[in-house]
Design a binder for these strands. Structure first.
Lengths: 125, 125
DNA sequence: TCCATCGTACGACGCCCATCGTACGACCCC
DNA sequence: GGGGTCGTACGATGGGCGTCGTACGATGGA
């Protein structure tokens, strides 16, 4: 078995595009940590490694959240060496629920911007 | 105090448009019963009374779901006699998160259509 | 006035989920 | 080969939420 094969085999549980359900998408997106993860992936120019995320939970909890995102169909994961890369499944989601992902990301960005604004305002003299 | 005043006073807890948060919107929409309620309101030509909804839970549970929807800012409620009417807060939501409500409703309708399709298919000979 | 209906309040219950700590396997680099 | 890093697995735990039953207030009609 080649190294490439091993790397591929280490990932499981990506649902087919046809099996993506709104229920799982919303459950996944309703959690603040996962929403932040999706935002960071969406706003990054390239695919992002798990370790480079700015999250406020333990590694094991992080693993849990990435699994939920993967099983919901929101993200696709693949190994590069020891680090796991993440991408949004834009095409599959567009096919399943057109316009939904863009609207969710836009809303999440707006939410984050509002949070930053509130924080800045509270720090003013 | 007039009857109209009493009717108004009997409703509480509508958040201001500026206080609508994505967190609450998503939590509200992530529940299947509440999602079905929002769909029925969105697809009805006029405002809908609580009692006329097709929901699969008890009245008391229904009250709970309507309260969550109201406190999230998704719906506005007002009394007409003894029955409570429901409307989507389209304008306020559009201001808070442009395009989000339409995308969510479209996705929910698509989800419901898929569920109907699956059911019909399973009933074929 | 009396009753039927609509919605609410409150308490109870059960389940699911986010979180963590620890131990382990996989991989890269020296 | 050996240590260090990255991610996972597993069990435990605590809290929150959906659900219900029952009892109660408000309204409208007979």
């Amino acid at each position: 078995m080649t190294a490439a094969h091993a790397a591929v085999d280490r990932i499981g549980d990506h649902p087919d595009a046809a099996d993506i359900t709104l229920q799982r998408i919303l459950e996944a997106f309703a959690d603040p940590v996962r929403r932040s993860i999706v935002r960071q992936i969406a706003n990054a120019p390239d695919d992002t490694a798990c370790g480079t995320f700015d999250i406020s939970v333990t590694r094991s909890t992080g693993t849990h959240h990435f699994r939920v995102l993967r099983q919901s169909g929101l993200i696709r994961q693949y190994y590069v060496g020891t680090s796991k890369m993440n991408t949004l499944r834009r095409d599959d989601l567009e096919q399943a629920f057109p316009g939904l992902l863009d609207a969710l990301i836009a809303a999440a960005n707006r939410e984050a911007a509002a949070a930053r604004g509130a924080q800045d305002a509270s720090q003013e003299p």
